[in-house]
Nucleic acid binder design. Structure first.
Lengths: 198, 198
DNA sequence: TAGCATAGAGTGATTAGTCAATCAAAATTA
DNA sequence: TAATTTTGATTGACTAATCACTCTATGCTA
């Protein structure tokens, strides 16, 4: 987001409306498929107002990504320091991420859509590695204590993330499983069995 | 692809040149970022020729996807019937897929780019379920014989695919590991340990 | 009244797709 | 075989539409 000066309450409301409209339209019609004019119209502001808050369309896309991804990070991390065991910490992150994705499926889809688009700038990518850091530290700690296999940290991180995405994909198609605690328990063990030292 | 009449050798050559140019440009500049005019220019044909073979730009994108995905399917499946054990069959598919991805990283990137874009039509998706069928049958057989865990077939399929994508992502970033057979062996066991009944 | 937010018509650039003209090769005729 | 006609591929200038972004006039608030 691009802005010079103090951001007032009414600014924030307007910006939020633009974000909301953009998220809705991007996920249903794609980045290219949504003209800025339609975003403005859906948000209930004039075309010019959109460009008052965002330098370009690309700026809007990148800002929205940062906002959404940040939301995911905050909600997943919040409260983790109260937990002691490494396994429980990993499980905490795991279930919080799933919880977030199940309550905001559109936002998850946006993240994926963005990740595989040519809009990503190294700049944006770097800003977002907070959650990766948390995972990486956990994994490293686990390797040190001997709880987690001594395999490349990067590999473990990628596999966890991909496994998580897969599980969410399945849950979105079979939402009743999400409320089946036996299933959810098993689903975590499926991935943790890979990581843990037998 | 859209065409009326017999497709000659020279047609195929032209079409291939268009596909090649499109793949190159789409993966580096995105679907929206590449004008059809540039595809035609790169392919060395006139603008009108492109539209002679493909009804619309979207038709080109979808056709290219089908072609690439089909290539992956064919190369992964070819020879699998000579193998007996289920585990070895799964491993065969697994390593063939990785092999293909490592020799055609651009095509893999295109597949992912497409999967998370709004160009997918149900039509296209259905046409592409051939490889899924092979996997699904293998999994079902494995469940019946007791070799594979009795979990939802769809879930197992999604997890395998995601795990595979993750592994490829890692290998592309660390290509030296691809030639390390100890690593490659371990990488397969990582996923098979999830599936197999202990 | 000063200063910033908002509006929305306007602009210039871009692009998917068209179409009438051209060309090459195959088919037909002499 | 040579001349002529037919067929369909190929071309690229052109068009109609779209879109990101600008700009100036107006509104609002402190």
């Amino acid at each position: 987001m691009y802005f010079r000066g103090v951001i007032s309450q009414s600014d924030m409301e307007k910006i939020d409306k633009i974000y909301k409209a953009a998220l809705e339209l991007f996920t249903t019609k794609g980045f290219h498929g949504t003209p800025t004019s339609e975003i403005a119209k859906t948000a209930g502001v004039a075309n010019g107002t959109l460009f008052h808050y965002f330098k370009t369309k690309e700026d809007l896309i990148n800002s929205l990504y940062l906002k959404v991804k940040n939301e995911l990070v905050e909600e997943s991390i919040n409260g983790i320091d109260k937990i002691d065991s490494i396994k429980l910490k990993v499980e905490f992150l795991w279930s919080k991420s799933i919880q977030w994705a199940m309550t905001h499926p559109q936002k998850l889809f946006f993240i994926q859509q963005y990740m595989y688009s040519p809009y990503i700038t190294t700049n944006t990518l770097e800003e977002v590695d907070k959650i990766k850091e948390v995972y990486i530290k956990l994994i490293q700690e686990g390797i040190k204590t001997g709880e987690i296999k001594d395999v490349s940290v990067d590999l473990i991180y990628i596999l966890m993330t991909q496994h998580l995405f897969g599980m969410i994909q399945y849950l979105i198609m079979n939402p009743e499983k999400y409320h089946n605690s036996e299933f959810m328990n098993m689903s975590f063990n499926l991935i943790y069995d890979i990581l843990k030292v037998n």
